[in-house]
Simulated assay, not measured.
Amino acid sequence: MSLNLPKPIADYVEANARLDIDGMLQPFLPDARFIDNGKHFEGQVAIRQLFEEEVIPVKAIFTPDTVRADGADIIVEGPAHGDFPGSPLRFTYRFTLVNGAIRTLETTI
């Protein structure tokens, strides 16, 4: 299924599929916020650490299958596969975009 994702979201998803940390960070603003199931990571340094410690080691790859707008936010849903308990798990990603970049990404199961 081909989804019409805004460029920063598509870039993030494509980099995640390659487990490319630098590519995953590129679409985020320097002071972006990532909220991972209630845990807050502020700025690219903290987000990089999240990717290095919790995404890459378990090879967590998100494969979106739905996208919709919710006000100013973009909601993307789909399974994440990897070497973690319960895989695959269905996630909801809520993106807030500002000036063509990711300002906030909130993930929930």
Rank of each mutant, 00 (worst) to 15 (best):
M1I: 14
S2F: 09
N4K: 04
P6C: 06
P6M: 06
K7W: 09
P8L: 05
P8H: 14
I9S: 01
I9T: 06
A10H: 11
A10P: 01
A10Q: 04
E14H: 09
A17W: 05
R18C: 03
I21S: 05
I21H: 08
D22F: 11
M24R: 06
M24D: 01
M24N: 01
L25P: 00
Q26C: 02
P27E: 03
P27S: 06
F28C: 00
F28P: 00
F28H: 03
L29N: 07
L29D: 01
P30F: 02
P30E: 02
D31M: 05
D31W: 00
A32K: 00
A32F: 03
R33D: 03
F34L: 12
F34Y: 02
I35A: 00
I35Y: 02
I35F: 04
I35K: 00
D36S: 02
N37G: 07
N37E: 10
G38M: 05
G38N: 08
K39W: 10
H40S: 09
H40C: 11
F41Y: 06
E42D: 14
Q44A: 06
A46T: 08
I47F: 02
I47N: 00
R48A: 00
Q49T: 05
L50Q: 13
L50N: 07
F51G: 06
E53A: 12
E53H: 14
E54A: 07
V58R: 06
K59N: 15
K59H: 11
A60P: 03
I61S: 06
I61F: 08
I61K: 14
T63G: 03
D65H: 13
T66Q: 15
R68S: 15
A69K: 08
A69D: 11
A69I: 09
D70M: 10
G71S: 01
A72W: 07
A72F: 12
A72T: 15
D73F: 00
I74V: 11
I75N: 01
I75C: 01
V76Y: 04
E77Y: 14
G78E: 09
G78F: 13
P79C: 13
D83M: 07
G86W: 10
G86V: 08
S87R: 11
P88C: 08
P88E: 09
L89F: 13
L89G: 05
L89N: 15
R90K: 13
T92D: 10
T92Q: 13
T92A: 10
Y93A: 10
Y93P: 03
R94Y: 02
F95P: 00
T96M: 08
T96H: 05
L97C: 06
V98I: 12
N99H: 14
R103K: 10
R103M: 08
T104D: 11
T104F: 06
T104R: 13
L105S: 03
L105T: 00
L105E: 00
T107P: 03
T107W: 13
T108L: 14
T108E: 14
